[in-house]
Design a protein around this nucleic acid. Structure first.
Length: 209
DNA sequence: CATGGGATTGACT
DNA sequence: GTCAATCCCATGC
């Protein structure tokens, strides 16, 4: 895979994020996430909202979840399973606890750097999971609460030259609570870059018997 | 203050 | 398919 120099889209404004997380999660597919010039096209997202128990904001504005209740358009980076950093963007109005988890990217810029950071992986696997993409982009705890409207951590609209993605929705991955909500969205034409195929059951979701 | 679970990954069988 | 790594923090006593 080669780097392309597609003209970047505009940086997404705070109003974009000041909406319900499901809308933002859908519309983020096809947009670009970058950190220090390294990044790719978002191909998989999940929505989280304080009204449902899978969301860290469900227990209220605890120290960890406080950023989720703050202004939209900030990063929420947290440690999962004691090992992996997961990147979210805060959505909704201030005072509302909600976010979108970015789960996978199609690498677009700085692929050589990503390969150095994730040796031995195919290009398709560089960012095919929420913990993988934070490694490839070097997003970490220091980025928690960062404003995505300024600085080197950026969310931008779909680059000109990128076609509008077809979406498929399904249950969120790796959760046990609220496993029935279809709040995961994937770009159906980007299967190779996803963390799991569309239609993968959530943890704890009963399969067909 | 002690405990237990979790929005995952990668190595190994 | 199975399983360990690793640690923050929410919860409960």
């Amino acid at each position: 895979m080669r780097d392309r120099s597609l003209p970047a889209g505009p940086r997404l404004p705070a109003e974009f994020f000041a909406r319900d997380p499901c809308t933002v999660a859908r519309e983020l597919i096809g947009c670009e996430l970058r950190h220090e010039g390294i990044g790719g096209i978002i191909v998989e997202t999940e929505a989280y909202h304080e009204s449902e128990p899978a969301c860290h904001a469900h227990a209220g504005p605890t120290p960890r979840a406080r950023v989720l209740f703050g202004p939209p358009g900030r990063a929420y980076v947290y440690l999962s399973y004691g090992i992996h950093q997961l990147f979210n963007v805060v959505t909704g109005r201030e005072g509302e606890g909600a976010a979108v988890l970015v789960r996978a990217l199609r690498p677009l810029r700085g692929i050589e750097v990503m390969r150095e950071r994730r040796p031995g992986r195919s290009d398709e696997q560089l960012c095919s999971g929420p913990g993988k993409l934070t490694l490839a982009l070097a997003i970490g705890p220091a980025d928690n609460e960062r404003d995505l409207g300024h600085g080197s951590l950026e969310l931008r609209g779909r680059p000109s030259g990128e076609s509008a993605p077809e979406l498929v929705a399904g249950p969120r991955i790796g959760i046990r609570r609220a496993a029935d909500l279809p709040w995961r969205w994937c770009a159906s034409a980007e299967r190779r870059f996803l963390s799991a195929p569309p239609g993968t059951l959530a943890a704890g979701e009963p399969g067909v018997s």
